Simulated assay, not measured.
Amino acid sequence: MTIPSLEIHLSEDMLTEALRHDARVGLTASPKWLPPKWFYDARGSELFEQITELPEYYPTRTERALLSAVAGEIAEAAAPEVLVELGSGSSEKTVLLLDAFVAHGELELYVPQDVSPSALETAAEQINERFPGVSVHGVVSDFTHTLHHLPRPKGKDGKRMIAFLGGTIGNLVPEERAEFLSSVRDVLDPGEFLLLGAGLVIDPAVLVPAYDDAAGVTAEFNRNVLRVLNSRLNADFDADAFRHVAVWDAQQEWIEMRLEASRNMRVEVRDLDLTVDFAAGEQMRTEISAKFRLSGLEGELAHAGFSVARHWTDPDDRFALVLAAAK
């Protein structure tokens, strides 16, 4: 059994500086916004895990069931020696891929990437115990900036597959998606693969409740971004004075999560020496979750330099896995 290794390209100071930048830009914009990556402190991660178990929240269980059904086909089509997972978190769903890849006999190295060293250490240890023949090399980084740090296979003919699951691609606006997909293509050699998990456009009557559950867990998750600013930037948001809002934008084909001020408020972000005013009813965007049509997603991949080798959808056509080869 090999000992998992951890490569760090994102320090706590760097993370704080990124938060400072995003908070200053987003809170002084009109309309205001904050990036969804700042939901995820320890409490935010705990809340999201609760969300994935809610009856309304279909994406996680749908993707897991789809992966379980087609992992063998993915292994047969891609046969990578190195599996890189961006935003790996607990690597729970990845076990389904690893089972299939190990059974296929090609996989040598698993590279989970995440911003959380503790999440990576825990996941790496669990993967190492379950798959003793696979080396595990964690990378602590922001996947939007440090893809060039991804390890290469030892053999000259070895292939990598980058997995980007969970529908996270939908958190990027179109310009960000284009930049991200192009950057992934830039680090892959021709014939190497990207496996992309993406939510599909479905009936808003099913879609909206997934982001506005009856128990209010998503509302607490949304408000947690304000508590992150309070704890990390010495702000004084009254998080409970903001209402969770989730709306379907039919033109953009994405869900927007917003926080709406219940009254006029003046917020001090002391570490930024910044005063922010909110009017009663003013909304601040905290997340988009774009949903896709397969033709559009394949077009975006083609524009970035990929050709789609295979795609799979669940029986209800709510979620897709797309295997794309670098051209």
Rank of each mutant, 00 (worst) to 15 (best):
E268M: 14
M284N: 09
E253C: 13
L259F: 09
I162V: 13
V217M: 04
A215K: 12
T146L: 03
H244G: 05
E256W: 02
E179R: 15
D271W: 11
I202Q: 14
D240R: 15
G199V: 01
D249K: 10
E268S: 15
K154G: 00
L172D: 06
T146S: 14
I169C: 04
Y211K: 04
F221K: 13
G197E: 07
N264T: 12
D213F: 08
N171R: 07
S262L: 14
D273P: 01
A280R: 10
S182V: 03
G191V: 08
S231W: 10
L229V: 06
L229S: 08
L200T: 03
V276A: 09
D236C: 04
T168V: 04
N234Q: 14
K154N: 04
T275I: 09
P174S: 04
R243L: 09
D271R: 15
G166M: 03
A246D: 06
T146G: 05
I288M: 10
A219M: 08
F237Y: 05
R177C: 07
T168W: 03
H149F: 04
L172W: 09
G158M: 02
S231Q: 12
A214W: 03
E287D: 13
M284C: 08
R152L: 15
H145S: 09
I255N: 09
T146H: 15
A280D: 07
D238F: 06
E287F: 13
F193R: 09
D240N: 15
P151A: 13
D238V: 11
A279K: 12
N171G: 06
F221E: 12
M284W: 01
R258Y: 01
D189P: 00
M265Q: 13
L207F: 12
R160V: 07
I202N: 13
V208L: 07
V247L: 12
N264S: 14
Q252M: 05
T275D: 10
L147M: 12
V187H: 05
M265H: 12
D203E: 13
H148D: 15
T275L: 08
V269S: 14
V184N: 05
T146C: 05
F237P: 07
V217L: 09
G191F: 10
D157L: 13
L229C: 12
N264H: 13
G155H: 15
G281T: 08
I288C: 07
V269C: 14
D236F: 00
D203I: 03
S183Y: 11
P204Y: 06
S231G: 14
P190Q: 06
L272F: 08
A239I: 08
D203K: 09
A198K: 04
A250F: 01
G281A: 11
E260G: 00
V269F: 14
T275F: 01
V217C: 08
E287S: 13
P174N: 03
V267K: 10
V247S: 13
L165R: 01
G158Q: 04
E287H: 12
L188M: 10
P151E: 08
H149S: 06
L188A: 04
E256G: 02
